[in-house]
Amino acid sequence: MAQPPKNLATPAIEIRDARVRLGDTDVLRGVTMMVPRGRMVALIGPNGSGKTTLLRCLLGLQGLDSGEVRILGEPVGPKVLSRVGYVPQRLQLEPSFTISVREFLSLRRRDTRGWFWQSHRRIDSMLHGTLGELGVESILDRPLAGLSGGQLQRVLIAYSLLAEPELLLLDEPTAGVDTPGEQSFYELISSIHARLGLTVVLVSHDLAMVFRQATWVYALNGVICCEGHPEEVLNADSLKAAYGIHVTPYHHHHHGAASGPVEQPIAFKRR
């Protein structure tokens, strides 16, 4: 019987007993999690729960005090990071930095790294295949610093996909996006996930989004408090463990464009 390719047999993310202390605070106190390939997972938790630190560990931007992190079956390093796409919250560009969307996207592909000397037509022909559904072809000439939050997030997604990643990490991706833009952004992520079959990790505090989009949820508060399908994790007891307050999920009785396993969007209220 044929064995699956080795790279698909390994989990997308393996974290074993990861501990990080920053200053006087134990930010991660023994995080263990394993994300199989092909899932669209969400990492949720309150402010200060270690979400960003954990993401930084996955990207090799933060070292561990102890424990182990492997992505795509390898220790975190430049080699494996070339197979990872990362979408940061925002770019905080200086308005005087005139880089255009086309130039920014060119930085990601090996064949367009000579963008300074290449014609726009040549660059566009090389980028074209990836940009199709992302709606960024019409803004290639725009300065990156002048984009709206929604446009910028699409450009960042396009940038990540240009390297054909196997794992896509998104850090609070809709932080600067208005509500309609947020909805269409998550639909885009879902569609990319479905089409390319890559593993997607969304770091978010947006519980409604988690319920709609993620197929698996990790609730973090220094440690992984609970994990499971959204409807299992997003209940009062689990959320109290993660958020340290009583949070009750309740369902809106209208139908959003849900594409996850649960059909109704939810919101949360404290009690």
Partner: peptide, 22 residues
């Protein structure tokens, strides 16, 4: 500057993206 133009531009855009870009 010309030799390292692409890394420098990426670094100027976002240091973490530059790190992930190798």
């Amino acid at each position: 500057l010309l030799w390292k133009l692409t890394p420098l531009v990426l670094l100027t855009t976002h240091e973490d993206l530059a790190h992930v870009g190798g």
